[in-house]
Amino acid sequence: MKIFQQHTEFDYSWEEVSTSNWRKYGPWNKLSTHVIAVDTLSRAVDPETGILRTERLITCKQSSPKWINSLLGGQDTSLVYETSYVDPTAKKVTMCSMNMTWSDLLNVRETCVYSPSGASPDAKTLFEQRAEITALCGGWQKIKNSIEQFTVERFQQNAAKGREGFEMVLEMSRKVFAEQRELMKLQNESEILKAAKF
């Protein structure tokens, strides 16, 4: 088993980050073109804890090199199963994902957590990512090691890209939200003007 771990901070509040997180792979993110589809399978608020649990299915374009693709079976898309847990009181989003494709040969389990930053909890959000990668194909330790090593390197390469892409979504989200508020303000003001006149 190999482990990939990293953490970083976003200059946005936890509320903004946790909302934009739902649009992370949408059209505002120009760097996530490998994500073809994101489907919600179920969603419910636990009446006892108030935690929102969501199950999603993420469809990705296969981007592994040919030697791995032919070793593992050669499909052109891969599926990821994700469950997320949002605790609005503790201000914590936890996302757990695992690969559904090639799951007999390779086990990738990732956990990401978004929480308010310790230093400035109202303005910044901490992102922590941890992935455990285990190749399962029997026997050949050398092949297992190569597959695990390749997967860890992919995580490393994607970490910066993932951050950059999410920054695009956060920026756009803030802009659109500000515009909406401005529009609502104008509408409200004009209603007040109308009421004052008549």
């Binding site: 636990d46 804890t49 108030g50 935690i51 649990r53 199950e55 199963y81 469950t83 847990y85 605790d87 009181t89 503790a90 914590k92 936890t94 757990c96 695992m98 559904m100 799951s103």
Partner: peptide, 16 residues
Amino acid sequence: AREDNRENDAEHMRPK
């Protein structure tokens, strides 16, 4: 996948 995910549910559905 749901079967494999049970431990995540057990861990994260508890409020901390």
